[in-house]
Every structure is written in structure tokens, then in C-alpha cells.
């Protein structure tokens, strides 16, 4: 589904990502971890082609095709993006935000057709936001707004979804709700998901694959189970961690010492 080959990115002489190679299959769930400045968001931007392409080397293949060969609209029909909820809040209602996600499918200014509207309704239903569809984003709580961004990405009906710290502004309950929803979408809808996160317990609970970046280099890539041993997190964050097991689920918990 997604193959990254020797991808590097630099701001002038300062490398941000160095020689990253990995392959993601359809339906995989990948958690991207690493300390601040490790290059996590730059990797996401590389996959979305938001970066200055003159500063990048290497190759990214999406569904077997070079990312550079996609038009912006073609790419938007394959990869969707959920930004962080903090910062600028678009002056739209939830439904308006979702309708904008149909842009890659619409002819110029012709408006939305029935299948577009059905996709919007499906996304609202999947995220349970039907009752809030008419509300302005700025009037929603952080958790509701983050769900609205997720719904907007779902309305884009792509096979791959990229999420940039989706739970970073949420309280523990909303964060848990959102993470459950992401896992459900991954398992039931077969969505390939790549999530940048600072929550070390997220991959432990969500399972799937993990990628750990440090100093712009790949420190670990593989099943999450392999992440919880061998001092990978300690090396990435230059910090000690305590590994516990959840008394009921038996899942791993990671605590910073």
C-alpha cells in the first residue's frame, strides 16, 4: 500500500529525516513515535506532499505508484489527513467541513451529488456526530472537534488515513473514546492508518505496527510487541521507562520514570 525508500529531508544542511525505508500493507495500523524534533510530522507531510519537494530525496510509492506522479486531487482520493485540533479553527459547521472533503471528487464548482452527500452522512454516522452536524466547529469541545476532523477525513473515502497527534488536546476519556474509534475504523473499515502520537500507551493498547524515530533516523519499525523490550524507547527519548501490565486486560503500560 505504502512503500518508503531511502527517504531523506533536510532544511539546508540540517537533516530532518535521514534514509527512512519501510513498507506498510493495506489495513495496517502504524503508530509513529519519537521525541520532539524527531521528524514525525515531517514524515507525514512528506506522505501528503506538503513539504518542499526540492529538499527531499528518495522515493515514496503509494499503491505501487510514485507519489510524485499523483496529481493533488488523485492523491486526496487515496490519502486523507486529520490535523491536530489545536490552533486555527475553521469558521464552518461540522457538515460544511465534511462537504469540503468531497472536493477531490467534485467537478469544478458543480456542487455535490447524491453519492457525495451519502459519503458525508456515512462519516457522520460512523463518528456519531449526526446531532452536531449543524454546529459551528468553534462551538464544539476539543473532543467533539477532533472527531469532526476525523469525520471529515472519513468523508474523503480514502484507503490511507494520516493522523497528527489526534488525541493530544483531549482529556483521558475523550482520548480513550477517540483511540477506540480509530482502532474500530481500522479493523472494520480496513483503513490503513498512520498515527503520530506522544502517548506511549497508545501503540501498546492499539497494537499493530510502531515506527520510532530519533534524530531523524529510524530506530525501530515492526510489531508493537518488539517495541516494549530492548531499550528502544529509552534510546529514543534518552529517558528511563517502567513497563507494567494492566491488571484486567493484561496489556502493557509504559510509564516515564
Amino acid at each position: 500500500m505504502l512503500k518508503i525508500e531511502n527517504f531523506s529531508y533536510a532544511f539546508g544542511r540540517r537533516p530532518v529525516l535521514t534514509d527512512i525505508s519501510l513498507e506498510i500493507r493495506a489495513g495496517d495500523y502504524l503508530s509513529i513515535l519519537g521525541p520532539n524534533g524527531a521528524g514525525k510530522s515531517t514524515l507525514l507531510k512528506g506522505l501528503l506532499r506538503l513539504h518542499d519537494q526540492g529538499r527531499a530525496t528518495g522515493r515514496i510509492l503509494v499503491k505501487g505508484r510514485d507519489l510524485a506522479g499523483y496529481s493533488q486531487k488523485e492523491l486526496a482520493r487515496v490519502i486523507s489527513y486529520v490535523p491536530q485540533a489545536g490552533g486555527w479553527i475553521p469558521p464552518f459547521s461540522v457538515r460544511e467541513l465534511l462537504r469540503l472533503s468531497r472536493y477531490p471528487y467534485a467537478a469544478i464548482s458543480s456542487g455535490l451529488n447524491d453519492s457525495d452527500l451519502a459519503a458525508v452522512d456515512r462519516a457522520l454516522k460512523l463518528t456519531g456526530l449526526g446531532d452536531l452536524a449543524g454546529r459551528q466547529l468553534r462551538t464544539l469541545s476539543g473532543g467533539e472537534r477532533q472527531k469532526a476532523y476525523l469525520a471529515a477525513a472519513l468523508a474523503q473515502e480514502t484507503e490511507i488515513m494520516l493522523l497528527d497527534e489526534p488525541a493530544s488536546f483531549l482529556d483521558p476519556r475523550h482520548a480513550a473514546d477517540l483511540n477506540r474509534l480509530l482502532r474500530k475504523l481500522n479493523q472494520e473499515q480496513g483503513l490503513t492508518m498512520l498515527t503520530v502520537t506522544h502517548d506511549l500507551n497508545h501503540p501498546a493498547q492499539a497494537g499493530g505496527l510502531a515506527l520510532v524515530l530519533a534524530g531523524g533516523r529510524k530506530l525501530f519499525f515492526g510489531p508493537v510487541a518488539g517495541l516494549l523490550s530492548g531499550g528502544i524507547l529509552e534510546a529514543a527519548y534518552q529517558h528511563d521507562f517502567l513497563y507494567l501490565f494492566h491488571p484486567r486486560s493484561g496489556g502493557a503500560l509504559v510509564l516515564a520514570e
Partner: peptide
């Protein structure tokens, strides 16, 4: 509309 929502969001929705 999409540029109003944010440039990154607009690009991810297919706007050049």
C-alpha cells in the same frame, strides 16, 4: 473555502 480552513487541510483535500 478550503484555504479558509487551512492550507495543510486544503492541500490534503486536493487543492494545489
Amino acid at each position: 473555502d478550503l484555504l479558509t480552513a487551512g492550507e495543510e487541510l486544503a492541500a490534503s483535500r486536493g487543492v494545489q
